[in-house]
Amino acid sequence: MCAAISSARVRKKRSKVQTSELFDVSNEIVLVTGGGTGLGLAMAKSLALNGAKVVIAGNKPENLEAAANTIAELGGKVMAVNLDVRCDDAICAVFDQIEAAIGPVSVLINNAGIAHRDKATHLERETLREVLDVNVDSLFMVAQEGARRMIRDARGGSIINISSVLSEIPIRQVAAYSASKAAVSQLTRSLALEWAKYGIRVNEIRPGWFNTSLTAPFLKGQGAAVMVGQNPTGRLGGNHDLDGVVLLLASRASAYMTGSSIVVDGGHSIGR
């Protein structure tokens, strides 16, 4: 009896060690676009507090500074860089800047994005083009630059694209946004197929309704209550609800995952 209990304790202890190693991100250099606020900041914070060297990128210096200070105060390793993802030269320069300062990016989180709220009969070409430019074109160009460098160094890596449950669930007044996120889903699969031979994993996270600056126009007034009422868990997403999935996709725990979509929405997409 004692021997059996002792053996079980040893196995349990070993299991904990293996799990810790499996999700280890302490050797990763992570670039998070749109990392100054919202879900980008939440993911950056989670990775930094688990030992990764995190670079947050965005085009609003005041947000980046505040975000970097928050992460640093919690003991995380963080670097902030200005980046307009619509500028190809700036994308290349930021990767050069990171490599010179701390080393090559091994995990890229394509989180930068914009939303809109327009009736389809009133949606202007300029708005449509802007949403697709930021959410699709720029995501591709950042992923391309990251992959080129991973291939150059023959080291592989992980690219995590942030899509949305709205890539498959239509709602009114967000035609351009929904179309852009559907494009992100297809890009994820296409790039995963093409880059797998280089050891580059490309996966996507599809968040549901989280209370961020991006979703604020939709959740004002009774909007939040409506979404909560439609959700099987009875709440919106919280600050730590992406922690587990981002640690999975950033670490070797997802070594055999590519082209995958992970929905994190409290069951919203199945409860409608």
Rank of each mutant, 00 (worst) to 15 (best):
A3R: 11
K12Y: 12
Q18W: 13
E21A: 10
L22V: 01
T33Q: 10
T33H: 04
G36D: 12
G36W: 12
G36A: 14
G38Q: 06
L39N: 08
G40D: 06
K45G: 06
L49P: 02
A52N: 02
A68H: 03
G75E: 10
G76C: 11
G76H: 12
V78Q: 03
M79L: 15
V85Q: 09
V85K: 05
C87F: 04
D88E: 14
A90M: 12
A93F: 08
F95Q: 09
Q97G: 07
Q97F: 07
I98W: 01
I102D: 00
P104Q: 09
V107K: 02
V107C: 02
N110E: 05
G113W: 08
H116K: 06
D118E: 15
A120E: 13
E124A: 13
E126D: 13
D133G: 05
V142G: 07
A143P: 07
A143C: 13
E145V: 12
R148C: 05
R152N: 14
R152K: 15
D153S: 13
S158E: 01
I159T: 03
S164V: 09
P170V: 06
Q173A: 04
A175Q: 06
A176Y: 12
Y177V: 04
S178M: 14
S178H: 08
A182M: 10
A183D: 06
L193K: 14
E194I: 11
I200T: 02
E204F: 00
R206A: 14
G208I: 03
S213Q: 14
S213R: 14
L214H: 07
A216V: 00
L219P: 08
A224G: 05
A225D: 15
G238N: 10
G238F: 04
H240C: 12
G244F: 04
G244R: 02
V246E: 02
L248K: 08
L249G: 00
L249D: 00
Y256L: 12
T258I: 04
V264E: 11
G266K: 07
G266C: 03
